[in-house]
Design a protein around this nucleic acid. Structure first.
Lengths: 218, 218
DNA sequence: CATCTAAACTAGCGGTGTAAGTTTTCATTC
DNA sequence: GAATGAAAACTTACACCGCTAGTTTAGATG
């Protein structure tokens, strides 16, 4: 069939369908032919709208990143802003966990990722952090959020715990928690994030604003 | 050619060659045919020694994880043990960064990853942490280390900074640091790790051992 | 010597991303 | 209104992928 009366594909349609496919069946199932079939079309037709497969993946990843809320950096104190951002970031990633391995490989040419980095960096510098420190903090939080979305500790455990329970005695209790994967992940994330922020606040008090933080009123 | 006088392949040879290939040319370049060519052999011959491609990757990943030192958990205080472990873990991953995306997706059936998890969990429980907390701490640190090895902030930036400098004003300074990628990553890692440990120590003092930590000598 | 197994081989299946060229529709311009 | 050119689908094809099946022969074992 040649060109139809009404185009069957648009960039937005492709991205939405790709997101749905990846969410439902995972990254390995996402192929150009498969996606095209989902759209009632023939594989190469996608190349009228995107130059490469990766460009489609970038668009999907950028949509996911675009859902992250960084508004706290203009309205709240930096600790609250970081906390809200990290949780929003985590929610955005865990809503589409299958795209995370692709997304985790750097901001690349995805504007939403760059806009996010810009907002975080700017907010921290405005709060008084030295530029180099602001870069470090943004990166450290990104590491933590991306790692938590990607490498769930529980996910990796295989089905039959007794298989290795004998060899790794301490894990006998731990991997039972694999059944509660989500709560383990959330608990680990909450603990790690709070600890990180606690440590950063201490560093801030020590190096950026010793006077205000040293007072008895906190 | 049929069976040679002396076997050309062994599991160890395959793993070593696969590691070298991945290190040198990245995960996408790693194919069974390509690896076989590197070994002077014909693709399918690999299946005499490994059942699937993923089994080869698991072996590579396990070798990498096996280089991580967890000995601190039997000889040092828990904070020092965590810090040493995290740095050793990071060194192991950054020595073979291209395998990290594969490795980050959970311990799976890789014995070294399970042994590492076991050592960390056991050490923390011995130090007095409640089992659930020990699981959370181990996971949080793993998130951070894996994320730092995987998603270097700097790596993702494209070559020409001026391209997006106009759109994201705050980043104008930040991405200049992309040239010093390694130092940025290390600085972010050091800051994040110290902050995490600082926060965990505070939590420990509050919930696990309030008496000893509250004294003026603590 | 006969037999069995191991470790290589060749051939091939169904899948991948994507390049090239074709066809037809639609929008624009003389 | 006819001609033109771009757009958006198509078909075909290439080189590669993981992997299976069956074959061949060297070495080990009875």
């Amino acid at each position: 069939m040649p060109r139809p009366r009404q185009p069957r594909l648009t960039r937005q349609l492709i991205v939405e369908s790709a997101t749905a496919l990846i969410d439902a069946e995972g990254l390995p199932a996402f192929s150009t032919r498969r996606l095209a079939a989902e759209l009632g079309v023939r594989g190469p037709s996608l190349y009228n709208h995107f130059a490469t497969k990766d460009e489609i993946l970038d668009a999907v990843a950028d949509t996911v990143t675009g859902a992250v809320d960084t508004s706290g950096f203009v309205s709240r104190d930096w600790v609250t802003a970081l906390r809200d951002w990290a949780w929003s970031y985590r929610r955005a990633l865990t809503a589409h966990p299958n795209i995370v391995p692709y997304l985790a490989q750097g901001p690349g040419r995805r504007p939403a990722a760059l806009a996010m980095a810009d907002a975080v960096y700017g907010g921290l510098v405005r709060a008084g952090w030295p530029p180099a420190r602001a870069t470090h903090i943004g990166a450290a939080l990104r590491y933590f959020v991306a790692g938590s979305a990607l490498g769930s500790f529980a996910r990796g455990f295989v089905e039959d715990p007794e298989l290795y329970a004998a060899h790794y005695p301490h894990l006998r209790q731990a991997h039972r928690l694999a059944e509660h994967q989500q709560s383990v992940d959330e608990g680990a994330f909450a603990l790690g994030l709070d600890s990180l922020l606690h440590g950063l606040a201490a560093e801030y008090a020590r190096t950026v604003d010793p006077v205000e933080s040293a007072g008895p009123t906190g």
